[in-house]
C-alpha cells in the first residue's frame, strides 16, 4: 500500500484482519486513532490486553468470563437443574439481557457443519453429556439458532440426551412479537402452528 509510514501501514493491515473491517474502514479507523489523543490509544491497547489476559472460557459452561467458574455457574441462587444450550457466548449475553431465564448455560462453541469441518468432536458436546450424566440436571433446553445448522445440532443433541433420561426441550420459533398474523409469511406461520401449546 502506498503509505509514507511503515507504522501506519502496519496499523491498517492489523485492523483489516478484524471481522467486518474492509480496507476503507481500516484506513478510517487508523486515521481516527492517529488524530485522537495518545491517552485514548493507550486506553484502547490496555482494554484489549486486559480482556485478552483476563477473559477465558468457564471450565463448566464455556461462557466467557473473568473468573472460572463464571459468575453464572457460581450463582447458587440459579436453578441448578436446568441447562440452556447455546451456540455462542453472545447468545448467553442475549438471554441474560432478556432476563427471563434463571438456570445454567452450556456454550457449544458453534453448530454442526461438516462443510466447514465442524463435527460433534469439535463442539463441547461430550462436556455437555458429562454434565448431564452427573445426574443433577432435569431439563436441557436447546436454544441453538433456528438455522439449518442450529436445527440439526439440536436434533443431534436431542437424540442422544433423550436416552440419558433427561427432559429435552427446544425453544419455540414462530411469530415475532407485535406481528400481525396476516403479515407473517407462510413458513413462519407453519412453524408457529407446529409449536403451539395448550392454554
Amino acid at each position: 500500500m502506498p503509505y509514507s509510514s511503515p507504522s501506519l501501514t502496519k496499523l491498517i493491515e492489523a485492523l483489516r484482519k478484524l471481522p467486518g473491517i474492509g480496507p476503507k474502514s481500516a484506513e478510517r479507523i487508523a486515521f481516527y486513532i492517529l488524530k485522537s489523543p495518545p491517552q485514548e490509544s493507550e486506553a484502547l491497547v490496555s482494554a484489549i490486553m486486559e480482556a485478552r489476559w483476563n477473559v477465558k472460557a468457564c471450565s463448566i459452561c464455556f461462557f466467557l468470563a473473568d473468573t472460572d467458574p463464571c459468575p453464572i455457574c457460581q450463582d447458587k441462587a440459579r436453578d441448578q437443574e436446568t441447562i440452556c444450550v447455546v451456540e455462542d457466548s453472545r447468545d448467553v449475553i442475549a438471554m441474560e439481557r432478556a432476563g427471563a431465564y434463571k438456570g445454567l448455560y452450556h456454550v457449544l462453541g458453534g453448530a454442526l457443519s461438516p462443510l466447514d469441518g465442524i463435527g460433534p468432536g469439535d463442539l463441547r458436546i461430550s462436556e455437555l453429556f458429562e454434565r448431564v450424566r452427573q445426574g443433577k440436571i432435569k431439563e436441557v433446553i436447546l436454544a441453538t439458532n433456528p438455522t439449518m445448522t442450529g436445527d440439526i445440532t439440536a436434533a443431534h443433541l436431542a437424540q442422544q440426551l433423550k436416552v440419558m433420561g433427561v427432559k429435552v426441550t427446544r425453544i419455540a420459533h414462530g411469530l415475532p412479537v407485535g406481528t400481525e398474523l396476516e403479515l407473517a409469511d407462510e413458513v413462519t406461520l407453519n412453524l408457529a402452528l407446529q409449536g403451539r401449546r395448550e392454554m
Binding site: L112, S113, P114, L115, G119, P120, M148, T149, I152, A155, H156, Q159
Partner: peptide
Amino acid sequence: KQRNAILKKLSRGESEESLLIW
C-alpha cells in the same frame, strides 16, 4: 452440501457421526 461434505470425508476413510442426522 453438508451431506456431500460428509460423504467426501467418509470416502477418505474418516468417520463422521453426524451423517444420519444430516
